[in-house]
Design a binder for these strands. Structure first.
Lengths: 212, 212
DNA sequence: TGTACATCAGTGAACGCGCGTTCACTGATGTAC
DNA sequence: TGTACATCAGTGAACGCGCGTTCACTGATGTAC
């Protein structure tokens, strides 16, 4: 934070630099989401105050609060995608890639719990809006999984033939782990998350190799 | 509904029948949760209006809004437990019981999506509060699962020895399915939920039999 | 070099809303004598 | 059988709050002549 608390007022941007505020708003909203851990706390007024600007200024760059939140998620979604790809690309074997993908997804979710909530656990999960508006960025995530499953099937590591079907099942599995982890304070009880993930993925790859 | 809309006012209870209002409040709150599909819409005022009473009357029976919501969940939690036990008791084999349990859990969640959200997907999941206040009702659910896993291990259907560990993993699996089902409008894509559940459970019981 | 003007990045005040909660009260119901 | 009284199940009005959003505006920055 360079700004000193409540009364701070951001210096006005030079001409032509109006877009800078947009970025600052997005960053402040994202920070606020992390800090408060609650989507409801990311109000137009709170974001404006964090940036050091009055509330109506937000509307210079976003149509309304909903669009602001979608934009926040768009960014986060892209970061999730990058994070996963970096991990996956470090591995060669399709099945190992699938496991690396799952681990990366879980790690990212656990480390950005409130963003994960907004993206995948909200009543109308933001990932859906993303699929509407910024189709490209949004669909990549799941389709990369589908591709990965495809390669794993081709390599003989997965028996079932419908890639979409297997991908959906696998997403459900990892989502369950993340969703409980970001929700229950004492999860997982009596063990570590890593151990649990090892076990779950172990069971999964074993079963998926033989079940049709 | 016996009451005709907005202007309705519930006749006042006879002396000694004050507790009746408590039940009516709980029922109205539960209905409201289903109808609006949104916890935020279950406001003290909205519940009061649905019952046909003024807002302050709620405070005759509940300390505050949070306690009201907890009580709503308490009821729902008990119903979930009953529903699952009925299904499980219709089966003999421990592993089949485990599958029946999973299916029942998923079915209940999908058919009471908003209650499921409040219980298991909220930021501070209500199941946690329940564990604090009404420990008995709350802990039963998970411990019945642990018992079931224990029996399945004894029967040789599951290899891993730590029952709590395996139970946590299994809960994560089924939670993932329910959580996505109550969140994504087009889930699961290109197939039915039943088919998906069959596959997921098939993979699970296969893997769990051999993986340590 | 000077000045009138357009543009741009915001501001300040206000709107109406629904919320949880408190407080002093009312009026029907039952009870004691 | 009649009446004073306590109790109980609510009511009505008000509190202060934060919210999203709109609207008319201001004043610094750059541009044209």
């Amino acid at each position: 934070m360079e700004e000193p608390g409540e009364g701070w007022r951001r210096p006005r941007a030079k001409r032509g630099e109006g877009e800078r505020l947009r970025t600052e708003i997005l960053e402040a909203a994202s920070e606020l989401l992390i800090k408060t851990g609650d989507e409801a706390s990311v109000s137009v007024r709170a974001v404006a105050q964090a940036v050091g600007v009055t509330a109506p200024s937000i509307y210079l760059h976003f149509q309304d609060r909903a669009q602001l939140l979608i934009a926040v998620c768009q960014r986060q979604y892209e970061q999730l995608d990058e994070f996963i790809q970096a991990r996956v690309n470090a591995v060669g074997d399709p099945l190992e890639q699938l496991k690396a993908r799952a681990r990366a997804y879980i790690e990212f979710g656990v480390e950005h719990p409130e963003h994960y909530r907004v993206l995948f656990m909200n009543k109308t999960a933001r990932v859906v809006d993303l699929a509407g508006g910024g189709r490209q960025a949004s669909e990549t995530g799941f389709h990369r999984l589908v591709d990965n499953v495809q390669r794993a099937i081709a390599a003989g590591a997965i028996r079932h033939r419908d890639t979409l079907f297997v991908s959906t099942a696998m997403w459900s599995l990892v989502h369950g782990v993340v969703a409980l982890a970001v929700t229950l304070p004492h999860y997982p009880q009596g063990t570590t998350l890593d151990e649990l993930v090892d076990y779950v993925l172990g069971v999964w790859v074993d079963g998926v190799a033989t079940v049709a």
